[in-house]
Design a protein around this nucleic acid. Sequence first.
DNA 1: CGCACGCTTGACTACCTTCAAGATACGTGG
DNA 2: CCACGTATCTTGAAGGTAGTCAAGCGTGCG
Lengths: 250, 250
Amino acid sequence: MTQAIPYRQVPPALKASCHQCSLSNLCLPLALEDNDLDRLEDIVRQGRVFDRGEHIFDQSTPFRSCFAVRSGAVKTSIVTESGEEQVTGFYLPGELIGLDSMSDNHYACTARALERTNVCEFPVDKLEELTVKLPDLQHHLYYLMSQEIRNSHQLALLLSKNTAEERIAALLLSLSSRFQRRRLSGTRFSLPMPRNDIANFLGLAVETVSRVFTRFQQQGLIKARGREVELQDLEALQKITREFTRQRCQ
Amino acid sequence: MTQAIPYRQVPPALKASCHQCSLSNLCLPLALEDNDLDRLEDIVRQGRVFDRGEHIFDQSTPFRSCFAVRSGAVKTSIVTESGEEQVTGFYLPGELIGLDSMSDNHYACTARALERTNVCEFPVDKLEELTVKLPDLQHHLYYLMSQEIRNSHQLALLLSKNTAEERIAALLLSLSSRFQRRRLSGTRFSLPMPRNDIANFLGLAVETVSRVFTRFQQQGLIKARGREVELQDLEALQKITREFTRQRCQ
DNA sequence: CGCACGCTTGACTACCTTCAAGATACGTGG
DNA sequence: CCACGTATCTTGAAGGTAGTCAAGCGTGCG
C-alpha cells in the first residue's frame, strides 16, 4: 500500500517559490507584500516529501519547525502515556502544522502523512525572528494560532454535545468547504483518511462511523464507496449539524 | 449570594503596577525585564472589577482587548445558533482571556465572572504594537496561544475518550495544580463554578456530575460539601485520569 | 416563613460501544 | 495473472454508560 518511491526531494518543477505557489492565498504568504515575501522565501525549506504513513515529526522530539501542507494531507494526533491516540486534526494544502508546539521545546503532537504529501518547512527560530521584522507576518501568525484555538473549541463542542450523525455531517461539510476553497469540488471528493481516523477524531467507534455512512446513504444524503464521497444533499447535512461550522484558514 | 458592592474601580491599594503584582510570574510580565515592563504598564488598564455573573465581554461584539485575571475566576463559553452553550474554559488569576479572538474583529466567546473578579485589560492594537518592539513579549504571546491550543486539544481528548469519572478527576486535579501554583492549597479549595458549568464544560449532565461527586466521596477520594472540596487521595485520582494532565501557564 | 435556586437521588431509556463475524479491497508473492 | 493474506470496511446482536425525566433535599435570600 505504501509505494516506496526512492527520491525524497520533489522534482524541480514543483520547487517553485512562494511567489508562484497556488496556495499563497491560504498559507503564510497571505499576509505579505511582494518584497516581504522574498524574506519568507529565504527561510522556507520547500520540497520535502513524505509517503503515506511517514512521520513528518514526532511528539516529544525537539521542536524545530512548523510545516505548511503543499499537497496531500496530514493528520496530527497526541498519544497518551497509556498509549491511547487522539487525532487532533486533519490538514489540507495551505494549512499550517505545529502551532501547538510553540509553547515548548518539543512537539506537542505527531504529524503523519495520510497520503503522499509535499510540505514546506519553516524553522521556528527564523520564523520568529522574521515576525519581529514583519508586523504583518506576526499578525497573521496570531491569526492562525487564534484560528487553531477556535477550531479546537469547536471540536470540543462537537464532541461534547452532538450525536454521531451530527459529528459526521459536520466533518463532511468541513471538508467540503475546505476543498471548495482550494478550487476543488465541494460535493465530490476523496476522503484522505481511513474510517478509523475519522472515528478517532470524532470520538466514535469505527463501527458507528460506518453505520452512519450507510444510514446517510440510505437517506440519499450522500453517496459513498470506500473513500470516494459525493454529497448529494448539502442542505440536509447542514440541517443535521445544528451549529458546527469549522472554518479553517478563512 | 451576589454582594452588590457599589464601586466599579478597585481601591488604590489594589491598583498596583505590574511590578508589584504577585502574579507577575504567571501573567504577561513573566517574559519581561524591568525596563520593558514599564512599557507593558503603559498600555494595561488595571483595576476593572466585575461582579458574579457580569459579562467581561460578549461573543460577536467588537474585539478590543485581552484580559488577565487578577483575582476571582472567569468562565468562557461559546453559544451556538441553536442557543446551546459550551463552556470552553475556566480561568484563574494570572491567566489570559481572549486569545481565541485574535483571528477576528469580534470576540469568539463570552467571558463571565464566576465570582467577584478583578481583571487587567490589554487593548489588542497596543499589545500587538508592543510585541513588535519587544520580541520577548511576542515570544511569550506565542507561548500562551500555543498553550491554549494544547489545552483545548487535551479537552477534546478528555471529551472523546474518557468516562465521566475520568473527566471529573481530571478537572479536580487540574484545579488543584493550578491553585497550588498560585500558592494556595492544592488539596482544599472552593470550586469557583457551579455543578452546572462543570457538567457543561465536561460534556456531561449535571446529574452525572453530582453522582460522580458522591461516588468519589463514598470511596474516600474526596470530601465535598457544596463547592467546598477536599482532595483526600490525590494518587487515586491521578490513577483514574489515565493521562489527562492539563497544565496551564506552566 | 416561604420561595427559588442549586444540588442530590432514583428509575427508565437511548445511544453508542463492544464483541463477533462477514465482506471488500489491496498488495504481495507465487 | 491469479491466489492468498492483510487491512479496511460493513453488518448484526448484546450490553453498558450516561442522559432524561421526575421528585426530594438543603441553603440562602427576599
